[in-house]
Design a protein around this nucleic acid. Structure first.
Lengths: 232, 232
DNA sequence: CGGCAATTTGACTGTGGTCAACGTGGGTGG
DNA sequence: CCACCCACGTTGACCACAGTCAAATTGCCG
């Protein structure tokens, strides 16, 4: 009764080079779920009942502190695995995942994880690489936030966003999902006011173009220089 | 010709519940290496020729930026696996590991990783949990550094150090390896001057006792309140 | 078209970074 | 074994970056 077509996942790096029978086997326990914009896929501290692969859309993963302060952990794009709490030995989700555009995800029950990696060990190995990559990212962000000033961090964040979800237009590269100044602030460890000021300054130089939940990078090279240059 | 006794690793979580024959098999390719205080086990950007388990001692893992700024990624204690670059799909080490006390580590050639996890899949699974735990830590630090003031971050860092390597003495809990003010600064994203001022203030309240590369926590509860309390 | 969320901008301020100068203790080598 | 020296630590003075708060404006969505 596998009602999900294997072609949906056959191209994903996570499942690359796996035989059709294995894909069908893996999909057997999966459900496909829709999340309209704004809906949470799971909430921080909630029991980790499932793990997921995003098929379509975009999610924002956040963590809140006891006193209500929030940070953006990352944005999830199509093809990525997320909500792997139980794979890393947690009973609950360490963050909240919210759809920022209408999204579709495959969900497996958490109990499926152990049998799945027992049967297909390369899944554990590939997940290890994915999680390792995220650890690298987190260390990069720690290094940046510890040692660099805000403008440079915002430049880096903007470049990352364009790489993750940049759409080329005649005027430049557009981040093709809704991002607020607050999101950028929570990615870079600053405030929405400071982000607004920085983007306004860049806009008056013609390097970017702002808008409500919208950022267009007109001159990626200038932003790159802000992120990596030596100030000359 | 396995010259390393399996009792050295049998008790480690990574190898828990593995049969003696498997441990001998795994140890067959391992070398045991000594690193005197101050010596680097590996350097950032160096080719990832090996992965390691620390048997004895303590290491500091750091990353430097292009312009020479440094952060402390973490301290490694006995029993921990480290230098797992190739397990997470990297060809080089993302940081530098330096012995802060005389240390002994087991080293396996990087090429041994794939065969090893093919034969003992639970190693991949346990390494995934370890790396996942580090990812949680990194996100916690990101959240703290983004949202909290310096004094609170220093309090948290100090508590972590006492949990990782605290030795109880009649006067309090001593961090039982050499830590400089600079180390604390690089852990918390501040400067050695600010750390020195904070520790001096705490010392004049009798909560800690400083010294050259030495920190004694006389009143762990007060430090806990600084880290977690609501300021009352 | 009404209302609300997102954004902008100004004025002010404080935390903590920078730089300089001075102490201090422990390891090393003569 | 002792003295020297250097890495580590302390403290003061200054001030800038970016946080805070307030108020006005914009532009979408329903």
């Amino acid at each position: 009764m596998s009602h999900i077509d294997r072609s949906l996942i056959a191209e994903l790096p996570l499942f690359a080079d796996m035989p059709a029978a294995a894909l069908d086997d893996i999909l057997h326990e999966a459900r496909s779920l829709r999340y309209p914009k704004g809906k949470a896929v799971f909430q921080q501290n909630e029991e980790a009942h499932s793990f997921f692969v995003l098929l379509h859309g975009r999610l924002r993963v956040t963590q809140v502190t006891a006193d209500g302060q929030q940070i953006v952990v990352r944005f999830v794009g199509p093809g990525e695995i997320f909500g792997v709490a139980q794979a890393i030995g947690r009973k609950d989700y360490p963050g909240t995942a919210t759809a920022v555009t209408d999204s579709i995800a495959l969900a497996w029950p958490a109990s499926a994880w152990q049998p799945m990696i027992a049967r297909y060990p390369q899944l554990a190995s590939r997940t290890l690489q994915t999680v390792g990559g995220r650890l690298q990212d987190a260390h990069s962000r720690l290094r940046e936030i510890s040692t660099e000033q805000v403008e440079r961090r915002v430049a880096r964040a903007l470049l990352r966003l364009t790489h993750q979800a940049g759409r080329k237009t005649p005027e430049g590269v557009l981040v093709d999902f809704p991002v607020t100044r607050q999101d950028i602030a929570e990615l870079t460890g600053t405030t929405l006011y400071t982000v607004s000021r920085i983007l306004s300054a860049w806009e008056s130089n013609g390097w970017v173009e702002g808008g409500r939940q919208r950022i267009l990078v007109r001159d990626p090279h200038r932003i790159f220089l802000l992120a990596e240059g030596d100030g000359t």
